[in-house]
């Protein structure tokens, strides 16, 4: 019996491993193909492949409007990430410090922007920012809009981290003469630093890669995804593959660093 079980287990294991392998293939093969075509000298994304080239990348570097959109995206992503992390931390710390009766209700509200279809969110934000706040479509609009869904995201990440800081530690700091702000500075911030870094990196990529909302509200200052979309309307050029490859590797790296900090444990 034991031998049979072992064999069955080995067989099941192999199926599962194959399944995971296939899942990753489906996830990453299209992107891998983009990277491959970005290095292919042929004008059209079709097989067989032609010569190896980096000319599409060179061409990118000469496109000042594209580079401008990259700059826009970096400004937006950095600002959104900073504001979201600060707001997220403040929200998470407040939730921890004051026992809210309607905490779950409140959290549900916080999560709402993450669950509303971005198309609706983008449209709603466009109307709200234009008609109610009379803001011209600009990078500021994109920053506000992205913060709307990035701040809750940061809050959830930081809240999970803050749970590891025992209340008694905070009480001990207070007991030893630390005020509210000193407790935050000496205890809370250092202990949830990995959560803060993770939240900052993940919200950065969320904002950097976001297209739909940015398309609604960016106006004449397109972010990179909006710019790519405009370029694609004139046909798929090989340069787009090159941008895709760069953005993919960039976002992926930031995500992986973020995940590393998310998984990091504090001692004790």
């Amino acid at each position: 019996m034991t031998i049979l079980n072992k064999e069955r287990k080995g067989w099941g294991d192999r199926v599962l491993k194959f399944y995971i392998f296939m899942a990753f293939v489906f996830l990453f093969l299209p992107i891998a193909i983009i990277i491959v075509f970005s290095l292919n000298s042929g004008r059209y994304p079709s097989f067989p492949l032609q010569d190896f080239t980096v000319k599409w990348y060179k061409e990118l570097m000469l496109d000042s409007r594209l580079l401008g959109s990259v700059k826009n995206s970096l400004i937006v992503a950095a600002t959104v990430s900073f504001i979201s992390t600060v707001l997220g931390f403040m929200g998470a710390y407040a939730l921890r410090s004051y026992k809210l009766k309607a905490e779950n209700f409140f959290l549900g509200f916080m999560a709402a922007p993450l669950t509303v279809p971005t198309l609706l969110l983008g449209l709603a934000l466009l109307i709200f920012l234009n008609s109610f706040l009379s803001l011209q479509n600009s990078l500021l609009s994109v920053i506000i809009s992205h913060t709307v869904f990035c701040a809750p995201f940061a809050l959830f990440i930081i809240r999970a981290r803050l749970r590891n800081v025992r209340i008694s530690m905070e009480e001990a700091a207070w007991d030893l003469g630390a005020g509210r702000w000193q407790t935050v500075k000496e205890l809370i911030l250092p202990l949830c630093a990995p959560g803060l870094i993770a939240a900052a990196l993940l919200t950065f990529t969320l904002s950097f890669d976001e297209f739909i909302i940015a398309w609604f509200v960016s106006g004449f200052q397109p972010t990179l995804p909006v710019k790519i979309w405009t370029m694609m309307r004139g046909g798929i050029k090989p340069t787009i593959n090159a941008i895709g490859a760069i953005v993919f590797i960039f976002s992926m790296s930031i995500l992986l660093i973020g995940e590393y900090f998310l998984g990091k444990k504090t001692n004790g």
């Binding site: 025992r166 008694s168 530690m169 009480e171 001990a172 700091a173 207070w174 007991d175 030893l176 003469g177 630390a178 005020g179 000496e186 205890l187 250092p190 202990l191 504090t266 001692n267 004790g268």
Partner: peptide, 19 residues
């Protein structure tokens, strides 16, 4: 005013600052 306090506490779980 926490620095004016006259007592100090030793906690059951020690509550040492791990960092």
């Amino acid at each position: 005013s926490s620095t004016q306090r006259q007592t100090n506490m030793v906690f059951q779980d020690y509550a040492l600052f791990p960092h």
